[in-house]
Design a protein around this nucleic acid. Structure first.
Ligand SMILES: [Zn+2]
Ligand SMILES: [Zn+2]
Ligand SMILES: [Zn+2]
Ligand SMILES: [Zn+2]
Lengths: 137, 137
DNA sequence: TGTAAACCTGTGAGCTGGACACAGGTCAAG
DNA sequence: CTTGACCTGTGTCCAGCTCACAGGTTTACA
């Protein structure tokens, strides 16, 4: 199976499959005359796993570690539990950050609603941004 | 003023100041004998503005556009209003994505609590991830 | 005065997770 | 045989910094 067929089968772009191949998550065989990469059913299975793991927030490096354990016949579960704990903390952090940013942006936009446009002058580059930054919180 | 002094004054790393300089947001003068970059009070003001804008979710390219308007003496306000609308949509999208991912991760971790570790077998690389992906939603 | 260590600098590279450009190979229609 | 459509691997690029590195500068001390 070539890259396009595998990609379409699992609903990703050929470039994504190439990327996973490039970093060693998939290991197709190289055709001798073609140079084209040939993906096995096992690669198919691995790609499916990659996509499931990415949906759970694992990074591609996480997945590399999981594959490494599994390829040695050991249970990857302890690794998985450890990794998702980190990712969970990160996601929580990102969630809080995004939440705060979103609130800030909303407040800014609303407070700008009835303010006029102004030209830059002196130290003030854009009074909307400069003034908002100095607002009492 | 050299890079470190400016950086410390505004609480960022010298590398960050160098980055903003590299992409043209700051324009220090080059000392002839030293090669060192020399930052003016205006650069100080610009950096302060950059940090305020970044806190509101503007990208550095957004800020470049804002500076461009301001440097020509025009009001950057219309640009600012237009740009933040885009960033607001993006932030909302990111917020929703993060919210969903966070929920998925929590559900996964909880459902894994009473499941044992298993070795890989057949098509199953890690049953925690493989099984969770097949769960009824 | 020498000199060695501590500190500072600019530049180049690296990070994530792919997306895109490009030169060339392959294959069917005519 | 040739034209065009399609496909391929490889190299480069993106944001927003951070880090590594080689070399210049200043300071401490003899
Ligand atoms: Zn497992
Ligand atoms: Zn924890
Ligand atoms: Zn303005
Ligand atoms: Zn809108």
């Amino acid at each position: 199976m070539q890259v396009r067929q595998l990609a379409e089968m699992l609903g990703v772009s050929p470039d994504t499959v190439r990327y996973y191949t490039r970093i060693g998550l998939l290991e197709p065989k190289k055709s001798i005359d073609n140079g084209y990469k040939f993906y096995s059913p096992n690669d198919q299975n691995r790609l499916r796993f990659i996509l499931s793991a990415r949906d759970l927030g694992f990074s591609v490096d996480d997945i590399k570690q999981i594959f490494h354990k599994a390829d040695e016949g050991e249970s990857p579960c302890p690794t998985v539990r450890r990794l998702i704990d980190n990712r969970l903390h990160e996601t929580e952090q990102r969630f809080q950050d995004t939440l705060r940013l979103r609130a800030r942006m909303h407040v800014a936009v609303e407070s700008w609603g009835d303010k006029p446009d102004k030209r830059p002058s002196g130290n003030v580059i854009c009074h909307l941004i400069d003034d908002f930054n100095k607002m009492p919180e």
